[in-house]
Design a binder for these strands. Structure first.
Lengths: 133, 133
DNA sequence: CTGTATCCCAGTCGATACTG
DNA sequence: CAGTATCGACTGGGATACAG
């Protein structure tokens, strides 16, 4: 897999077969249950581990750790350890992470403004299914 | 989930608690393994079941059926049966589906153009991890 | 052709306990 | 505070077989 400095067209449909997997793997991280929420919180500034945990609410320690490690691996967040007692770890969006904010918010806003339409569609669909049985 | 106490960024944060689940459920459909690809293919026009199956390649009959059913339920695609022998079923994006194309492509294009950055970050991260053990 | 129904494995996630 | 380790429940998804 190499796409060095190729003039990347802005059309997703033109990707090569090999790139498909990478794109899918990144896309699946976005679709991950906690990723979007975590990024949205970090947009406001650096956060500590438990700070994020509290803000997210429903997440387990394990999943937050996994989510953050995944984001760190992909270069979206940085992890900064301050070796005090007790230890302090700050997570912060990288430049790449901040650039992700734009498309993520586009998607979030689309979702938000179409919630009624989707709900209506689901209700209608479910009602039809019910009548079919 | 509490996103409502900070003076932050976009509309996505303004949602009410109850809507959070809906937003998450829609978002998770986007992150679904086959959804984005399927939508991208349908952007070009209506497609039949096996036509989609062939184009996607790696998908099983079961997953394509489930994916399409989910999209239909959310009002993103329509399913049109032509009762001939053999039967013919066409799937087509609704207006809602076509509007989804914009944010999806934004995300896709971000992903596509940042593949090198992410790959580099992963490689760097993995190397560091390796050295730590 | 276009599905639905079953079986089954691999991976995911939460809860809990333990460590530095 | 900030994790890692482990276990068990649950689920996604492929393969296969069958039906309209």
């Amino acid at each position: 897999m190499k796409l060095d400095n190729k003039p990347v067209t802005s059309d997703i449909r033109k990707h090569l077969p090999g790139e498909c997997q990478i794109v899918a793997s990144i896309l699946s991280r976005i679709g991950d249950k906690w990723t979007v929420l975590t990024i949205m919180l970090l947009v406001a500034g650096p956060k500590r581990f438990n700070e994020l945990k509290r803000m997210i609410g429903g997440i387990s320690q394990r999943m937050l750790a996994l989510t953050l490690r995944g984001l760190e691996r992909d270069g979206v967040v940085t992890r900064t350890v301050t070796p005090t007692v007790p230890p302090r770890v700050d997570y912060e969006l990288t430049e790449l992470g901040h650039s992700l904010r734009v498309p993520i918010e586009a998607l979030g806003n689309w979702t938000f403004s179409n919630v009624p339409a989707v709900l209506e569609a689901r209700e209608k669909f479910d009602k039809q299914q019910k009548g079919k049985v």
